[in-house]
Structure formats: C-alpha cells, structure tokens
Design a protein around this nucleic acid. Sequence first.
DNA 1: TCTAAATGTGTATTATAGTAAACAATTTTG
DNA 2: CAAAATTGTTTACTATAATACACATTTAGA
Lengths: 87, 87
Amino acid sequence: MINAVSIKEVKTKLGELCKQKRQAYEMSQEDLAKALDLSRFTIQKFESGKNATLDTVLKIAHHFDWLESFYQALKNLESTNDIDSLY
Amino acid sequence: MINAVSIKEVKTKLGELCKQKRQAYEMSQEDLAKALDLSRFTIQKFESGKNATLDTVLKIAHHFDWLESFYQALKNLESTNDIDSLY
DNA sequence: TCTAAATGTGTATTATAGTAAACAATTTTG
DNA sequence: CAAAATTGTTTACTATAATACACATTTAGA
C-alpha cells in the first residue's frame, strides 16, 4: 500500500494540533513557551509547520498528553513484520 | 489518568525501532544513511536515543512507512476533546 | 474607537544537531 | 583463527534550531 502522507504534511499537522490544543486550554504562545521552558519564537515556528528538535516536539507532546499515544503507535509498529507477509 | 511514559523513553523506543527495522531489512547504518541522505553518525546517534531534528525523525519514519501511522495518531488526537469530559 | 493582548517577523547571538574523516572496538563470516 | 564488515567514538567544522529583544500587525475587549 502506498503511503500518501508527506513529511511536510506531518509537520503541518503537528503545528495545527499544537495551536488547536493550546487555544482549547486558553493559553497564549507565551504561556505555553513558559510552561515548557521554551521561547515563544520556538512555539511560533513549530505551530507554523517548521522544523524543530525532537525534544521540542516531545515537550509539547508531553504537555498535551500525546506521549502515551505516540508510544503506543511505536509499540504497534515494533511488532509488525513488514518485510514480507509470511504467506 | 497519569501518563507514565517519559520523553526519554520515547526517544529510546524510537532508536530501538529504527535499529530493529533497519536490521530486518538487512541494512547497515551506512546503507540507511545513504538512502536518506544523512550521515552514519546521525543514524548512530538516533538509534542510541539521542536528540535529533524532526526532519531526521520523519525521514526515517518515511523510509520505514511509519508516516501514515503517525499521521493517524495525530488525527485521532485532533478530534479528542481533552479539556473536560462533557459530563 | 482605541486600547491591550496576542501573534507574526526581523536581527543578532548562542547552543547544538549534522557532516566528514579517521580510528578503535566489536561482530560476522570465510 | 583471520579477515572483513559493522558499529561505536572522537575531533574539527558547518548548518540551523533555539534564544532574546524589538517592533509591526492582527485580534479581542472595554
């Protein structure tokens, strides 16, 4: 099966999700930055789909409780035998 | 519900998963690095659970077809109303 | 409206991820 | 065991993510 999702789309979606959740919590970019010990500029860049470090992504993920979901996705991939089907 | 997974654990799991899948494809770190236009050092660091950029993570994810899975996890989080339960 | 908060941009600087090359240590294979 | 391949580590350098500050623009509230 073809994977139609691009790297750029994932980055954009991550940024959108951050913005959406931040606003749902009625936090400003400044509020979130302070809570995560990051600069507002880093939040701004992330929400607009730019590149970031894994630590930044995971800090944000942790704050909005996405970490368990991410970890589960990884564990599911781990058990998948994706070279060839056995039959 | 408490989120018991730490940022460090997610990074470690990402690295382990990369190593596991790379070996399943019988690729060396060098092979993977060349395929993704990254240095072997970057692969080495990633597999040992160090920090990286989102682009690096997503290049690796794309190569092993994790992108769709990641994107779906994000879309699931998007629709979740996680402030208060409605009742 | 007009004021204030929040967001988007810009510049300069710092911190660090990424690269390239070499070499040691380890693992695999003949 | 010996040779080869792979992996782990170091050093010097480059590229860029992150910071701090300022300021313009946009969005909400009084």
